[in-house]
Amino acid sequence: MQELMKAKAQEMLSNGSVTRVLAWKKGDFETNPEPAFFTKHVDDMVYNQYCATNLSNFMVGVEKEEGKTLVFLKPCDTFSFNQLLKENRISRDKAYIIGVGCEGVKVIDEMQETGALLEKCNVCTKIKHMVYDELIGEDVTRRVTDDPLTRFKDIEAIEKMDAGERFAFWQGEFSKCIRCNACRNACPPCGCKKCVFDNDNYDTAQKANVTTFEEQMFHIIRAYHVAGRCTDCGECTRVCPQDIPLHLLNRKFIKDINALYGEFQAGADIETLGPLTDFNIDQDAEPSIVYDRG
């Protein structure tokens, strides 16, 4: 598959149909490929189970640049691409998308496999590419779970806790936060040009974990802000240096949105209005109406 991808990328670069290729570049270990733009040769391009980064997010960075970008997207990454498209952060005609198959992304520590797949891969249901111009090796994609509800098992466990236990659980997790902002910067829907936490007119700095209160504010505000827009791509949890299970916050919102407004998957298409932006005065005017409706 990697060779097919490289051949196609080189062909499109050489004949000028794209200006650049967004893919993964060989690292100094087999296990640490990095996201990269190729403009001439693609000799260093790789694709394997260590290519974790959701490349959709990097499309925002080249949106204003001249020319078309060939981007390789795994099935789950195409949901993010659609979501960014829907929010007018990127343009469809500036991308040539090749959907690539995915066998799950391996977790690496100290450049070695831990034997595990990323959490999102264990509960993966996103086996189809939602947007593409062409597919390569899509048949290697395999569904890891047949039960789409598997991904809510952890949420249910937290819901079963009483308020005190739940508070203690999140306090324990959030207190690990070092405010590196990796979760925010890796998150495709977290795309404000100027984040509210980067406002230097505030006298509480975004980089200071002054109190646990502030850390909770950061993650909870972030979760609220991406509610209904989060595709559950799992980048927040993957990039967290302190191993905070941030996806649980987003998934709680996804679960509740499904229950209150009907099944919804952000990024499945670009037409459907999001449940939190699709306002119907008769049905959604009051939270109590939604609550009673069940």
Partner: peptide, 25 residues
């Protein structure tokens, strides 16, 4: 090119030493 502008490297680094000074009202 691939830097996402987070502060992970600087905050887990044993020698990164820069600090900011702020006033809290």
């Amino acid at each position: 090119k691939a830097c996402i502008a987070c502060g992970t490297c600087t905050f887990i680094c044993p020698t990164c030493q820069c600090y900011d000074v702020k006033d809290y009202d």
